[in-house]
């Protein structure tokens, strides 16, 4: 199995690792049993994601997709973040081995899960905006 240079770059030098205190939205997807957990923290000002941080337990691709996903939504509007697909994350990383595609799905879900939490905190029903965020089991 071979990772692209971009995946290796984001694995060895992951961007935006950490936590945000008093984050406006926190999402966590995956579970330890499956071998990957992604936790995403968002700071949102108006409609704009002003800061994003992540923590990931998982393989090289899991770390790289989380890192890339944070880069792709940093400074973007919520709408733009909601439109981010796992395909876009994969393309930005110059591709992933087939067995690692689920990591990019997890990254997309982590963002949606954090935004779900953001809307809940705002007292807004997230489901009409985000749709259902599938369970980790569904990505396998």
């Amino acid at each position: 199995m071979i990772y692209s240079d971009k995946v290796m770059d984001h694995f060895t030098n992951p961007r935006n690792v950490g936590e945000i205190e008093n984050a406006d939205g926190i999402g966590e997807v995956g579970n330890a049993k499956c071998g990957d957990i992604m936790k995403m923290y968002l700071k949102i000002d108006g409609n704009v994601i002003t800061d994003v941080k992540f923590k990931t337990f998982g393989c090289g691709a899991a770390v790289a997709t989380s890192s890339m996903a944070t880069e792709l939504i940093m400074g973007k509007s919520i709408d733009e973040a909601l439109q981010l697909t796992n395909k876009a994350v994969m393309e930005a990383l110059d591709g992933l081995p087939p067995v690692k595609v689920h990591c990019s799905v997890l990254a997309e879900q982590a963002i949606k899960s954090a935004l779900w939490n953001y809307y809940e905190k705002q007292g807004i029903d997230p489901e009409p905006i985000i749709g259902k965020v599938p369970d980790c089991e569904d990505c396998h």
Binding site: M8, F11, T12, C34, G35, D36, F57, G58, C59, G60
Partner: peptide
Amino acid sequence: GIEGESLLLMMDYYGVCASSGSAC
């Protein structure tokens, strides 16, 4: 608390070739 493949990739970065029984 860590996953085997990440561990192997990091160890490879330091020049150590090893193996893991992780699913990944």
